[in-house]
Nucleic acid binder design. Structure first.
Length: 265
DNA sequence: GGAGATGTTTCAAG
DNA sequence: GCTTGAAACATCTC
């Protein structure tokens, strides 16, 4: 489910817990979300530490604690974060619950594609080794074009889903960007004109910025004119041209585009 | 019951 | 070496 702005929305949901100590931790320790984690360390070291800060970077989140610990959360396809009462009885998919005196911070993930990371002290490699964020000043058109030269034979839709190049972009954002840039999703990167590359860069920034403004604070509704509202089911019409939208698998993912507007591959 | 799903990783094949 | 495609992960919804 979650892409850039949805991830940040879920990060903020644990905000009520900032400044309060963790009193206990409950984990479904055999679940796949802990495949890269020593659950024993997490259970041993987190209690007693105060939740200090949280940040998101693309689809990755990190929560930092007073004792120097780092908790990483990736939501995968179906992960979510929420707050429940202090006495919350974890449901079958609530794989990690951080208990505070006034509430429980809950991580849920039915499909288990998500991932929990934990490091007791010191900046973890998974948090330092991160690509340039889309909304940072360093994500310039030149930066993007430079990164794309190594991928000139790849299909643009696949490249937009590459988290090293477009951190936070997922399936709906990729389709939204290409629809706005008027580029067919199956185009090879090397076939794109400089102005098309620039348009993809510009629309990437636009979609990311607007999504962060609308979705991250309270899961608000994007404007009706966005492809987002029309791409999910068969029979949708392009909000700009009125033509029937096409849905097809490209780069292994369901892809929606507006024929005519987005040319051909 | 079957298909498909807003993700990532891995492996085989071209 | 690069790219693609499929499979795997596990569950829910349409």
């Amino acid at each position: 489910m979650p892409e850039l702005a949805e991830v940040d929305f879920f990060r903020r949901r644990w905000n009520p817990g900032l400044g309060d100590p963790i009193e206990a931790v409950a984990a479904h320790r055999t679940k796949r979300v802990f495949r890269d984690t020593r659950v024993r360390d997490l259970l041993r070291w987190l209690p007693g530490q105060t939740l200090r800060t949280s940040e998101s970077h693309g689809k990755q989140m990190v929560f930092r604690f007073s004792g120097g610990s780092w908790l990483g959360v990736h939501l995968g396809m179906t992960g979510s974060l929420r707050v429940e009462s202090a006495s919350w009885n974890p449901q079958p998919h609530d794989h990690l619950v951080l208990r505070q005196s006034a509430r429980s911070l809950v991580f849920r993930d039915p499909r288990l594609f998500g991932r929990i990371l934990f490091q007791r002290a010191g900046v973890p490699g998974w948090w330092t080794d991160l690509p340039v964020e889309i909304l940072s000043a360093d994500f310039t058109a030149d930066h993007l074009c430079g990164a794309l030269t190594a991928r000139r034979n790849a299909v643009i839709k696949a490249v937009l889903l590459d988290q090293r190049l477009f951190p936070g972009v997922g399936n709906w954002m990729a389709d939204e960007i290409l629809w706005r840039a008027e580029v067919h999703p199956a185009r090879r990167v090397g076939s794109l004109a400089p102005q098309e590359l620039r348009s993809i860069w510009k629309q990437t920034r636009f979609v990311a910025r607007r999504a962060m403004e609308v979705i991250a604070p309270d899961w608000g509704d994007l404007p009706r004119g966005w492809l987002f509202h029309h791409r999910w089911s068969d029979g949708g019409a392009c909000p700009r041209t009125g033509a029937a939208l096409v849905r097809e698998t490209i780069a292994g993912r369901t892809t929606c585009w507006s024929p005519g507007r987005q040319g051909s591959s």
